[in-house]
């Protein structure tokens, strides 16, 4: 936990500096404006467009230094902890649940929501949850059917269908 605390503070500190740099960006259409011209008060206009994000990210950077000092002095609970950031069960959870979630997201791009939802539910309920095929099947089929009638048919919110799009044309002809 202690190592994770300082590594996270460094990453967030770098992120804060990047946001400070990005906040000072001048608009592309006005070559007369230099970087960081917009982070202060402009005569007759008040604060520039970069004022608010720049100074907020500056405070974020200071906070990261403060977190680093607390880490060095071992005053925050994570900096005192010898426990791992994620124990073996936590890593297992992240790998299978988090990995499954990312897989679900990626499959949506290929098979759309209606192909990805059953696959994700079968993966989670059958393989991670060890539920029966009957229960898994019922929920894995019921959920996309509910979503289809609720979103596509009732709400006319067309969810992405990826390569499965042609399969839905007859359904649209029946229900729409």
């Amino acid at each position: 936990m202690r190592k994770a605390e300082i590594v996270t503070a460094i990453i967030l500190g770098i992120l804060s500096l990047c946001i400070m740099w990005k906040s000072g960006e001048a608009p592309a259409w006005d070559p007369t404006v230099a970087r960081f011209d917009n982070i202060g008060l402009i005569d007759g206009e008040g604060p520039g467009s970069g004022f608010w994000p720049f100074w907020l990210s500056f405070i974020m950077f200071i906070c990261c230094i403060w977190i680093g000092i607390n880490w060095y002095r071992r005053t925050s609970p994570p900096s005192q902890s010898d426990a791992p950031f994620l124990d073996s069960s936590g890593k297992h959870m992240l790998l299978f649940v988090g990995g499954g979630l990312i897989g679900f997201l990626l499959v949506i791009y290929v098979l759309g929501f209606y192909g990805a939802i059953p696959l994700f539910l079968i993966y989670y309920m059958r393989f991670l949850g060890n539920h029966t095929w009957k229960l898994t099947g019922m929920i894995s089929v019921g959920m996309p059917v509910f979503c289809f009638f609720f979103f596509d048919i009732a709400m006319r919110i067309v969810l992405p269908k990826g390569y499965l799009e042609p399969l839905f044309i007859p359904l649209y002809e029946i229900f729409l």
Partner: peptide, 13 residues
């Protein structure tokens, strides 16, 4: 293990 995947699905949809 039933509730969590359903919440994930609802969140994305």
């Amino acid at each position: 293990t039933i509730l969590a995947p359903m919440i994930f699905v609802l969140s994305l949809v």
